[in-house]
């Protein structure tokens, strides 16, 4: 299965939300990384057929996804960034309703709902009204509905928002398990969500796709620009104003700063292994600080 984006552009008035994105996506997890307003959600919406590109084309195995219509949507599982619920529906009723809108038969839906509620740790909440669930639980219902039809293309926009660390790990593992024979597109600005499971990371900035590569390759690309330096308390502000400073670890000998810089920031600075947070900081420093 191959999802192809050919020069996809989406404009809203004068603003280019997505600007000439071209890429190919095959089975595996793809992490879309970008600051707020970078175009991730707009691109996700086009891939989910919620909106159409202003220009360019999205195809699945050579066929335009908008021409494919319901046969494409039949393959799709989607979790929007902001999902609403019918609050007076119970969890089970909501999932049955969505299953029927996905064209599933009652028997198949029943089995799948039981299985998925177990996977997202909501079995005990089956008969509870959605309005009474916490934000994290509602998000888990959202994840379950996206997986109901065993989708071949799963698009999840900020899926871990509101989940506690344990549930985030559970969700990551779930995605990792199912991604072998399907395309999973995951948009986030929480780098740890994709660090270990993404086959490739797509970095978006100002509507453009600026990088697409494996996490390893992307991190290798900035290997010479990540430094660790020990400073005292009084020097921290000066480093922060001159460099992109990531983590700061306070210890007995002062503060250890993680710095992203093309040049060596201090005589005693040492290179340190790169992680995805460094990568994020490298590309989105201004946005992160905003």
């Amino acid at each position: 299965m191959k999802l192809t984006l050919e020069n996809v552009t989406k404009t809203f008035g004068d603003k280019r939300a997505v600007d000439g994105v071209s890429t190919e996506l095959t089975n595996g997890v793809y992490g879309f990384l970008g600051a707020n307003g970078s175009g991730k959600t707009t691109l996700m919406r086009m891939l989910a057929t919620v909106s159409t590109p202003t220009s360019g084309r999205i195809t699945l195995n050579g066929n335009d996804i908008f021409q494919l219509g319901d046969s494409y949507r039949d393959l799709l599982g989607y979790l929007p960034q902001h999902i609403g619920y019918y609050k007076h529906f119970t969890v089970e009723k909501f999932l049955f309703y969505i299953a029927s809108l996905k064209g599933m038969d009652k028997h198949g839906a029943k089995q799948r709902i039981t299985e998925l509620l177990d996977r997202v740790n909501l079995t005990e909440k089956t008969k509870v009204k959605i309005g009474k669930l916490s934000g994290g639980m509602k998000q888990r219902v959202g994840i379950a509905q996206a997986l109901l039809n065993d989708p071949k293309i799963l698009i999840v926009d900020e899926p871990t928002a509101g989940l506690d660390p344990k549930e985030r790990i559970r969700f990551r593992n779930l995605l990792s398990e199912i991604a072998q024979d399907r395309i999973v597109l995951l948009s986030t600005h929480i780098v740890s969500d994709i660090e270990y499971i993404a086959k490739e990371i797509l970095i978006m900035k100002n509507g453009r796709l600026i990088e697409k590569n494996t996490p390893q390759k992307l991190m290798e690309g900035i290997q010479q620009q990540v430094w660790k330096v020990q400073v005292n308390d009084r020097e921290v502000a000066s480093y922060q104003s001159s460099y992109k400073v990531g983590n700061m670890v306070r210890g007995s000998n002062g503060v250890e700063l993680r710095i992203i810089s093309e040049r060596k920031p201090a005589g005693d600075a040492d290179h340190t292994p790169v992680n995805l947070e460094d990568l994020y900081l490298y590309y989105f420093d201004k946005e992160a600080g905003a």
């Binding site: 619920y85 019918y86 969505i98 809108l101």
Partner: peptide
């Protein structure tokens, strides 16, 4: 119009039987 009020239209647009059919 309950989908619209509940914030479910975006999701329903992506289902096999989509928002306008619903």
């Amino acid at each position: 119009l309950k989908s619209q009020h509940a914030g479910l239209t975006e999701l329903e647009m992506t289902l096999k039987y989509n928002a306008h059919q619903i």
